[in-house]
Nucleic acid binder design. Structure first.
Length: 409
RNA sequence: GGACAGGUGGCCGAGUGGUUAAAGGCAGCAGACUGUAAAUCUGCCCGCGCAAGCGUACGCUAGUUCGAAUCUAGCCCUGUCCA
């Protein structure tokens, strides 16, 4: 369908739209006024990972299209734990941990959104501020009357857990009510008209839309993004080392860059549209590159995304490192470095210390498999003691992509 | 509170006294082939130790036994049904 609003045209062209509660209504609204729209984020870790990047980019698009992005930090709801898509209850986090996480997560938003007091400036809110005030009786009276248990049981987040015969606590069962209440609160207090989220949030979002209509007779909208998987079907954001974190503290820029550089051919175009600001015709040209030339598009992707999330300098250094390491076969400045003391280090232990292998046992296996190379020579003894003069460097590789530097001190 | 079923390695899932560090599958890693891609084939896949070797592991605890994930008792947790 064709939209009249810049917002929906932009989202549609770049592949953000999966479902909407009322496409026409939202399109009409966005065409005539600034739409304040929000997305909620959990505070379960000190950084979001790239699984959340679609949502963050969607707030960026909202702002680019002349609307107002609102970042909702789930300081309150994180204490409950979203049961959506999981079989087990979340571990309880302390208040302090949640606050620390929120403070840490904030940095990524400040890179991708423009905050301030203007009409289309981004703002960040924390649902602890209003959920924390709520009395139990008051909540039951105001909100509980608008939910039937019959309906709550029918939502995927609940139904799937029950079908799989996994326990769900009453605490978690209440999550959807609170998330629904968030929407209503923001609609009432800040005139928020749109909630966005991943496709797994559809049920929660619809709840909020209906709750707002019932309590305030106000029309608000919901929009979800497609579930983002890689072309090989895996959920996005996992590597050998774990999640691909957006914060520098959790993942070095070089590794972040490499993640994008290593994406499937089939993902390049989609990722460029979703995660970069490049114009669509340029993206179309890049994704059409034949054969091995597609690698150039992957470098562009890695550079653009890294620049957005980590800054232009980080992107340049990462690219230079990759080029020096892979194209020239040398060493780049961004490669991980292991300081080797005068007593030396054993080959296997060095692999583990650099994070290339999970344990000395695994390092040993990799040596046996012929995957470990020192200065490009295949090694066959994990117990080899490596001694280096101060300042001397050697190249250590496990497989083709995990490359680091040993440096004598 | 009662009856029944169940709790195995990252996940799924075999195994009901003895080469069982535990079949098989998925995920992951590596090798070959390539383009730092995909597909395919092959190998690896608890930890510590340079090594000999050692230590942990089948919900928890105590027992039976030369020997237990497998048998016994108690406990914890989950599900289903009944009250």
């Amino acid at each position: 369908m064709t939209y009249t609003s810049d917002l929906l045209r932009l989202l549609e062209q770049r592949g953000y739209i999966h479902q909407m509660t009322d496409a026409q209504g939202l399109d009409a609204l966005a065409a005539r006024q600034i739409v304040p729209g929000y997305i909620g984020f959990d505070a379960t870790a000190p950084s979001l990972h790239i699984g959340s990047l679609v949502q963050i980019m969607m707030l960026r698009r909202l702002q680019q299209a002349g609307h107002k992005p609102i970042v909702l930090m789930g300081g309150g709801t994180t204490r409950i734990g979203d049961p959506t898509g999981r079989d087990e209850s979340r571990k309880m986090l302390s208040d302090q941990t949640i606050e620390d996480n929120i403070a840490s997560i904030r940095t990524i938003f400040s890179r991708l959104l423009t905050f301030g007091d203007g009409p289309t400036d981004a703002v960040m809110v924390n649902n602890q501020d209003w959920l924390g005030q709520l009395g139990y009786i008051q909540l039951l009276q105001e909100v509980g009357t608008h939910f039937t248990v019959n309906r709550m049981l029918s939502f995927d987040s609940v139904r799937l857990r029950l079908e799989r015969e996994q326990p769900m606590t009453f605490l978690e069962f209440n999550y959807m009510i609170l998330q629904g209440y968030d929407f209503r609160h923001l609609a009432k207090d800040m005139g928020v008209a749109l909630q966005m989220g991943g496709s797994d949030q559809w049920g929660n979002i619809v709840n909020g839309v209906e709750l707002t209509r019932r309590m305030d007779q106000k029309e608000v909208f919901g929009l979800t993004t497609p579930l983002l998987t890689t072309a090989s079907g895996a959920k996005m954001g996992k590597t050998a080392a774990g999640a691909v974190w957006l914060n520098e503290d959790q993942l070095p820029a070089y590794d972040f860059w490499q993640y994008w550089r290593n994406c499937d051919d089939a993902d390049v175009g989609r990722f460029l549209r979703l995660f970069t600001d490049l114009p669509l015709d340029e993206i179309a040209r890049l994704e059409a590159l034949p054969g091995a030339e597609i690698n150039a598009a992957k470098v562009v992707l890695a550079n653009e995304v890294t620049a957005l999330c980590r800054g232009a300098d980080a992107a340049r250094t990462a690219e230079a490192t990759a080029s020096a390491t892979f194209a020239a076969g040398g060493l780049g400045e961004d490669l991980p470095v292991l300081d080797v003391p005068s007593e030396g280090v054993r080959l296997g232990a060095a692999c583990t210390a650099l994070g290339f292998t999970a344990s000395n046992g695994e390092a040993k296996r990799k040596v046996v498999e012929g995957a470990v190379r020192l200065d490009d020579a295949v090694m066959d003894d994990a117990g080899l003691l490596i001694n280096l003069a101060p300042g001397e460097t050697r190249k250590l590789a496990v497989g083709k992509k995990k490359i680091g530097v040993l440096k004598g001190i």
